[in-house]
């Protein structure tokens, strides 16, 4: 049986985590291709609907990552994101999507190495958890 390759959808903010990903790239630090980055201007604009949609479409893990508390380019977008993730953590386990499948991290613009390490760690965890329950049977 082929090795399980999880799909991780990562909503990353333009100012911190995306910049960190960029830094990882320009520094030629690799990170697993399981992670699909979606750049947003701020974690505060990540509507919980985006996260639900990702799970329903078969994401095995969803990451929302932005600036450290106090560093948000828009002052408080990351605090709003934190409350929304908190809300989703209270809902998703009830319908069989484990809490650990939805992650929130703070990765600053200069944390290229930290970014790559975090992505590696998430892939290890996602593999450990196995396929998410929304994963469709992909027809080829």
């Amino acid at each position: 049986m082929a090795e399980f390759n999880p799909i991780i959808i990562a909503f990353v903010c333009n100012w911190c985590t995306y910049t960190a990903a960029d830094l990882a790239g320009t520094s030629r630090i690799g990170y697993p291709e399981n992670v699909r980055l979606i750049r947003v201007m701020c974690t505060g604009m990540v509507d919980p609907q985006y996260i639900i949609k990702a799970f329903l479409e078969g994401a095995d893990m969803v990451l929302v990552s932005g600036c450290h508390p106090g560093d948000c380019h828009y002052i408080n977008g990351n605090y709003k994101a934190r409350r929304r993730i908190k809300l989703l953590h209270a809902i998703l386990p009830t319908i069989g999507i484990e809490r650990d499948r939805l992650k929130l991290t703070w990765i600053g613009a200069s944390d290229g190495i930290q970014f790559a390490r975090t992505m590696q760690e998430l892939v290890v965890q996602a593999k450990g958890m196995g396929p998410g329950s929304g994963r469709p049977e992909i027809m080829t």
Binding site: I85, K86, W106, E121
Partner: peptide, 12 residues
């Protein structure tokens, strides 16, 4: 929302 709340939500 506040700066120092729900600290356990974030993390790997």
């Amino acid at each position: 929302f506040k700066e120092n709340e729900f600290l356990d939500v974030a993390g790997v």
